[in-house]
Protein backbone atom coordinates (compact mmCIF):
# COMPACT_ATOMS: atom_id res chain seq x y z
CA UNK A 1 0.00 0.00 0.00
CA UNK A 2 2.81 2.33 1.00
CA UNK A 3 4.64 1.64 -2.25
CA UNK A 4 1.47 2.40 -4.28
CA UNK A 5 1.04 5.64 -2.38
CA UNK A 6 4.69 6.55 -2.97
CA UNK A 7 4.32 5.71 -6.68
CA UNK A 8 1.20 7.88 -6.96
CA UNK A 9 2.98 10.79 -5.25
CA UNK A 10 5.95 10.41 -7.62
CA UNK A 11 3.68 10.37 -10.70
CA UNK A 12 1.86 13.46 -9.46
CA UNK A 13 5.16 15.26 -8.74
CA UNK A 14 6.60 14.38 -12.16
CA UNK A 15 3.50 15.62 -13.99
CA UNK A 16 3.41 18.79 -11.86
CA UNK A 17 7.06 19.49 -12.67
CA UNK A 18 6.47 18.97 -16.39
CA UNK A 19 3.45 21.26 -16.21
CA UNK A 20 5.54 23.90 -14.47
CA UNK A 21 8.33 23.58 -17.02
CA UNK A 22 5.87 24.06 -19.87
CA UNK A 23 4.21 27.08 -18.28
CA UNK A 24 7.67 28.51 -17.59
CA UNK A 25 8.44 28.13 -21.34
CA UNK A 26 5.33 30.19 -22.11
CA UNK A 27 6.48 32.92 -19.68
CA UNK A 28 10.03 32.84 -21.04
CA UNK A 29 8.79 33.16 -24.62
CA UNK A 30 6.82 36.27 -23.60
CA UNK A 31 9.90 37.70 -21.91
CA UNK A 32 12.01 36.92 -24.98
CA UNK A 33 9.45 38.64 -27.24
CA UNK A 34 9.39 41.65 -24.98
CA UNK A 35 13.22 41.74 -24.97
CA UNK A 36 13.25 41.48 -28.75
CA UNK A 37 10.87 44.42 -29.02
CA UNK A 38 13.10 46.52 -26.77
CA UNK A 39 16.24 45.43 -28.59
CA UNK A 40 14.76 46.20 -32.02
CA UNK A 41 13.64 49.62 -30.80
CA UNK A 42 17.13 50.29 -29.48
CA UNK A 43 18.65 49.13 -32.79
CA UNK A 44 16.29 51.47 -34.64
CA UNK A 45 17.52 54.40 -32.56
CA UNK A 46 21.19 53.48 -32.99
CA UNK A 47 20.74 53.43 -36.77
CA UNK A 48 18.42 56.43 -37.05
CA UNK A 49 20.23 58.89 -34.80
CA UNK A 50 23.82 57.69 -34.58
CA UNK A 51 24.36 55.68 -37.79
CA UNK A 52 26.28 53.24 -35.59
CA UNK A 53 27.90 50.41 -37.56
CA UNK A 54 25.67 47.36 -37.36
CA UNK A 55 27.89 45.06 -35.28
CA UNK A 56 28.34 47.74 -32.63
CA UNK A 57 24.68 48.79 -32.84
CA UNK A 58 23.65 45.19 -32.16
CA UNK A 59 25.90 45.03 -29.11
CA UNK A 60 24.46 48.32 -27.83
CA UNK A 61 20.93 47.05 -28.45
CA UNK A 62 21.74 43.94 -26.41
CA UNK A 63 22.00 46.14 -23.29
CA UNK A 64 18.28 46.96 -23.52
CA UNK A 65 17.13 43.62 -24.87
CA UNK A 66 16.94 41.90 -21.44
CA UNK A 67 15.77 38.31 -22.05
CA UNK A 68 16.72 38.54 -25.74
CA UNK A 69 20.13 40.14 -25.09
CA UNK A 70 22.01 37.06 -26.22
CA UNK A 71 20.43 37.23 -29.70
CA UNK A 72 21.72 40.77 -30.29
CA UNK A 73 25.12 40.27 -28.72
CA UNK A 74 25.67 36.95 -30.52
CA UNK A 75 24.80 38.54 -33.88
CA UNK A 76 27.22 41.43 -33.22
CA UNK A 77 29.92 39.04 -32.05
CA UNK A 78 29.61 36.75 -35.09
CA UNK A 79 29.86 39.73 -37.44
CA UNK A 80 32.82 41.25 -35.65
CA UNK A 81 34.91 38.25 -34.84
CA UNK A 82 34.08 35.84 -37.62
CA UNK A 83 33.46 38.44 -40.36
CA UNK A 84 30.12 36.74 -40.93
CA UNK A 85 27.60 38.48 -43.22
CA UNK A 86 24.91 40.24 -41.18
CA UNK A 87 22.13 38.06 -42.57
CA UNK A 88 23.90 34.83 -41.65
CA UNK A 89 24.96 36.16 -38.23
CA UNK A 90 21.38 37.18 -37.38
CA UNK A 91 19.96 33.83 -38.51
CA UNK A 92 22.55 32.01 -36.38
CA UNK A 93 21.86 34.26 -33.39
CA UNK A 94 18.09 33.78 -33.34
CA UNK A 95 18.70 30.04 -33.04
CA UNK A 96 20.33 30.71 -29.67
CA UNK A 97 16.95 31.47 -28.03
CA UNK A 98 15.15 28.19 -27.42
CA UNK A 99 11.83 29.76 -26.47
CA UNK A 100 11.04 31.47 -29.76
CA UNK A 101 8.44 29.83 -31.97
CA UNK A 102 7.88 29.65 -35.70
CA UNK A 103 5.73 32.83 -35.93
CA UNK A 104 8.41 35.12 -34.50
CA UNK A 105 11.27 33.16 -36.07
CA UNK A 106 9.69 33.72 -39.46
CA UNK A 107 9.34 37.49 -38.84
CA UNK A 108 12.94 37.68 -37.60
CA UNK A 109 14.23 35.71 -40.60
CA UNK A 110 12.50 38.06 -43.04
CA UNK A 111 14.18 40.94 -41.22
CA UNK A 112 17.60 39.31 -41.81
CA UNK A 113 17.43 39.65 -45.59
CA UNK A 114 19.52 42.68 -46.68
CA UNK A 115 20.26 43.52 -43.05
CA UNK A 116 22.70 46.45 -43.06
CA UNK A 117 22.94 46.49 -46.85
CA UNK A 118 20.39 49.10 -47.82
CA UNK A 119 19.99 52.77 -47.09
CA UNK A 120 18.85 54.13 -43.75
CA UNK A 121 15.22 54.64 -44.74
CA UNK A 122 14.78 51.06 -45.87
CA UNK A 123 16.61 49.70 -42.81
CA UNK A 124 14.40 51.72 -40.48
CA UNK A 125 11.20 50.68 -42.23
CA UNK A 126 12.18 47.01 -42.04
CA UNK A 127 13.13 47.39 -38.38
CA UNK A 128 9.85 49.04 -37.52
CA UNK A 129 7.86 46.43 -39.42
CA UNK A 130 9.66 43.61 -37.61
CA UNK A 131 9.24 45.30 -34.23
CA UNK A 132 5.51 45.75 -34.83
CA UNK A 133 5.19 42.10 -35.89
CA UNK A 134 7.01 40.96 -32.76
CA UNK A 135 4.82 43.28 -30.68
CA UNK A 136 1.64 41.74 -32.17
CA UNK A 137 2.95 38.24 -31.52
CA UNK A 138 3.83 39.19 -27.91
CA UNK A 139 0.37 40.72 -27.29
CA UNK A 140 -1.29 37.56 -28.64
CA UNK A 141 1.03 35.41 -26.50
CA UNK A 142 0.24 37.46 -23.36
CA UNK A 143 -3.51 37.31 -23.87
CA UNK A 144 -3.48 33.55 -24.36
CA UNK A 145 -0.83 32.80 -21.73
CA UNK A 146 -3.10 32.76 -18.62
CA UNK A 147 -5.59 30.50 -20.35
CA UNK A 148 -2.83 28.22 -21.66
CA UNK A 149 -1.21 27.92 -18.22
CA UNK A 150 -4.57 27.18 -16.58
CA UNK A 151 -5.33 24.57 -19.22
CA UNK A 152 -1.86 23.09 -18.85
CA UNK A 153 -2.29 22.76 -15.05
CA UNK A 154 -5.70 21.07 -15.45
CA UNK A 155 -4.43 18.72 -18.12
CA UNK A 156 -1.31 17.67 -16.24
CA UNK A 157 -3.27 16.94 -13.04
CA UNK A 158 -5.95 15.05 -14.98
CA UNK A 159 -3.32 13.09 -16.87
CA UNK A 160 -1.51 12.23 -13.63
CA UNK A 161 -4.73 11.11 -11.91
CA UNK A 162 -5.76 9.06 -14.94
CA UNK A 163 -2.36 7.35 -15.01
CA UNK A 164 -2.54 6.59 -11.25
CA UNK A 165 -6.04 5.06 -11.61
CA UNK A 166 -4.93 2.97 -14.56
CA UNK A 167 -1.77 1.77 -12.82
CA UNK A 168 -3.20 1.01 -9.42
Amino acid sequence: MLSKLLGAVLILAAFALEGKRRSSCIQKRIKALSGLEQGLLSLEREIAYLSTPLALALEHAAVNAEAAAEIFSAAGRLMNRQRMPAEQAWREAIKSNLYLQSAELSALSRFAADLGLSDKNIQLKKLELTRLSVSDIRKAAVSSAAEQIKLLKGLTISAAVTLIILLF
Partner: peptide
Amino acid sequence: LQQSLRLLSANSFYAME
Protein backbone atom coordinates in the same frame (compact mmCIF):
# COMPACT_ATOMS: atom_id res chain seq x y z
CA LEU B 1 30.65 42.85 -55.64
CA GLN B 2 28.06 42.44 -52.87
CA GLN B 3 30.60 40.72 -50.65
CA SER B 4 33.12 43.48 -51.15
CA LEU B 5 30.47 46.11 -50.51
CA ARG B 6 29.44 44.35 -47.32
CA LEU B 7 33.05 44.23 -46.13
CA LEU B 8 33.76 47.85 -47.11
CA SER B 9 30.73 49.07 -45.20
CA ALA B 10 31.17 46.61 -42.31
CA ASN B 11 27.61 45.39 -42.98
CA SER B 12 26.41 48.95 -42.44
CA PHE B 13 25.67 50.54 -45.78
CA TYR B 14 23.27 52.93 -44.08
CA ALA B 15 26.14 54.37 -42.03
CA MET B 16 27.97 55.39 -45.21
CA GLU B 17 25.26 57.62 -46.65
